[in-house]
Design a protein around this nucleic acid. Sequence first.
DNA 1: CTCCTTTTGGTAATGGTTACCATTATCAAT
DNA 2: ATTGATAATGGTAACCATTACCAAAAGGAG
Lengths: 156, 156
Amino acid sequence: MPISNCQGDGWWQGKIQECGYRLTAGREAILEVLSKSEGHLSAEEIYMKVHPRCPSIGLTSVYRTLELLAGLGFVFKFDFGDKRARYELAEGPKGANHHHHLICTKCNRVIDYTDFIDEEIELLNQTEKGLSQKYDFKITNHLIQFYGLCNACNEK
Amino acid sequence: MPISNCQGDGWWQGKIQECGYRLTAGREAILEVLSKSEGHLSAEEIYMKVHPRCPSIGLTSVYRTLELLAGLGFVFKFDFGDKRARYELAEGPKGANHHHHLICTKCNRVIDYTDFIDEEIELLNQTEKGLSQKYDFKITNHLIQFYGLCNACNEK
DNA sequence: CTCCTTTTGGTAATGGTTACCATTATCAAT
DNA sequence: ATTGATAATGGTAACCATTACCAAAAGGAG
Ligand SMILES: [Mn+2]
Ligand SMILES: [Mn+2]
Ligand SMILES: [Zn+2]
Ligand SMILES: [Zn+2]
């Protein structure tokens, strides 16, 4: 059992207030759900999971909170091709746990992968630097997704 | 003036019929609009541009055709964060003219870039090969987008 | 022509997301 | 504690890009 964060409080407690926002029950509940569930939840799924702990919360507030958290960089918002946005906690203060996705175009399965080749990270930085300079564009984030067929769908 | 394709016919003429689909006036008009316009058009924008040449066409058919073409790999479908899908012709039989995007999170401007570092292409292939193998996943396509602030928006 | 399949256009429905607004919670100053 | 300004919330209605549906038209084979 680690010394810090024993009461279930996350690294975000301070962060949110630093940004001038209040750490309300609803926001905390949403962050807790995000941190305890394995990725790629839709707004409604989050709403469902939050409801038992916080029955008064409305779907509108879920959307609002997710938008807020995405704007602050605490949450990533994805589009995997099904018609709803998917949200995922950017764990860690600086977006550790960053990863990319394999998406099956047949069954919509999504596979996380973090095992970048070392060179991949290196080159990504170089690319970002080069683009930043050439196009006078301040890069703050990137999205990398590979599309294709998962093993199940590939065997028809 | 090149010797081939002087009558405005594109490389797709045969391709579509090879796949067992008819090359109708509507489909041809849509492909022509896509090939003559510079990228990132929405379905409705395409509809507007096709209308003068083909007044009988309906918006439904535009959506249908774009879906068909995307399925065949002739067209790429993008999500740039405004709430509508954006379509872009994958010029050339094997998707030459492939490029990635810089997207301004403030004004939604989209910048194409094709000047990959040579290593980038090389590493991308390696990465795809590695992922393909490790996850038993047949990769057919990829999406790479960098987000941030364009020069105009960066100077507030 | 006849039969059968493909393609099409108009319209209605869908459904995730947002706008709106009145109500409530929070907090600093009095 | 009381006040008042501001932030946050929930419910509902609206939004709007996309899709479903269906009857009509077009094309092709024989
Ligand atoms: Mn993920
Ligand atoms: Mn482009
Ligand atoms: Zn699959
Ligand atoms: Zn911009």
